[in-house]
Computed example of a mutant assay.
Amino acid sequence: MGLQTVMEMKISSLEVYGDSMLVINQLLTHYEVRKDDLIMYHQMATQLLERFDFMMLEHVPRQDNQMADALANLAATLALTKDEAVNLLVCQRWVVPVTLGALQEGVNVISVLSIDVDDLR
């Protein structure tokens, strides 16, 4: 969701600081993704990261994560003017676009589609 938001903001250079060494190393292709249910998310993140002109991924140890979180919140606050607002859709589960889901056979995919007509289901 964060990468999609950054893409919509038309940002071309990105520095990503994450507290999961495993995820960072998987995105850097140092480690492979072994859990079947995470492969689609990895592919989606990789495809989004490839769209940036410059991208850096760096691991931040968990004990140092409080500062990274505070900086991220500060950056989000400073990026908006007083009269601007940003609406972010928050959900309890990630939803992988159907196009990526269709690439993986035998993997459970959740698709969310809007319907313009009344539906009794």
Results as ranks from 00 to 15, higher is better:
72 A>V: 11
25 N>S: 08
31 Y>L: 08
34 R>K: 11
76 A>S: 14
59 H>F: 12
32 E>V: 02
43 Q>L: 08
18 G>F: 07
49 L>F: 04
56 M>K: 15
54 F>D: 13
73 N>Q: 11
26 Q>D: 01
21 M>T: 10
35 K>D: 04
26 Q>H: 03
34 R>N: 01
30 H>V: 01
47 Q>P: 07
23 V>I: 09
18 G>V: 06
45 A>T: 03
22 L>V: 05
20 S>M: 03
69 D>F: 06
30 H>P: 00
16 V>M: 06
26 Q>P: 00
76 A>T: 12
30 H>S: 07
62 R>C: 09
27 L>I: 02
21 M>L: 14
47 Q>M: 13
77 T>W: 13
34 R>G: 00
44 M>A: 12
35 K>Q: 07
31 Y>P: 00
62 R>Q: 09
49 L>N: 04
54 F>N: 13
39 I>W: 00
53 D>V: 15
37 D>A: 07
43 Q>F: 04
70 A>K: 11
41 Y>C: 02
61 P>L: 03
32 E>L: 00
45 A>I: 02
57 L>W: 05
51 R>K: 15
47 Q>T: 07
51 R>D: 10
61 P>N: 05
65 N>T: 03
65 N>K: 09
37 D>Y: 10
66 Q>S: 11
78 L>P: 06
62 R>D: 06
44 M>D: 12
48 L>A: 10
43 Q>N: 07
26 Q>F: 01
28 L>C: 10
16 V>L: 11
44 M>S: 11
62 R>I: 08
21 M>Y: 09
32 E>R: 00
50 E>R: 10
39 I>T: 00
22 L>N: 04
34 R>I: 01
31 Y>T: 04
50 E>I: 05
29 T>S: 10
34 R>P: 00
23 V>K: 02
66 Q>H: 15
31 Y>E: 04
23 V>G: 00
58 E>C: 14
75 A>H: 11
77 T>M: 11
48 L>N: 08
40 M>Y: 02
60 V>T: 15
21 M>V: 15
49 L>G: 05
40 M>K: 02
59 H>Q: 04
70 A>Q: 12
57 L>M: 10
77 T>G: 13
64 D>K: 14
55 M>N: 11
74 L>I: 10
25 N>W: 00
76 A>Y: 13
37 D>M: 08
33 V>R: 00
46 T>H: 00
72 A>M: 09
17 Y>P: 09
17 Y>M: 15
48 L>E: 05
75 A>D: 11
16 V>W: 05
17 Y>F: 13
59 H>S: 05
77 T>E: 14
35 K>I: 03
72 A>S: 14
25 N>V: 02
61 P>G: 04
28 L>D: 09
52 F>S: 06
69 D>K: 06
58 E>P: 09
56 M>Y: 12
45 A>H: 04
76 A>F: 12
25 N>A: 02
44 M>Q: 11
58 E>K: 11
47 Q>W: 13
24 I>F: 04
32 E>H: 02
63 Q>L: 13
31 Y>H: 12
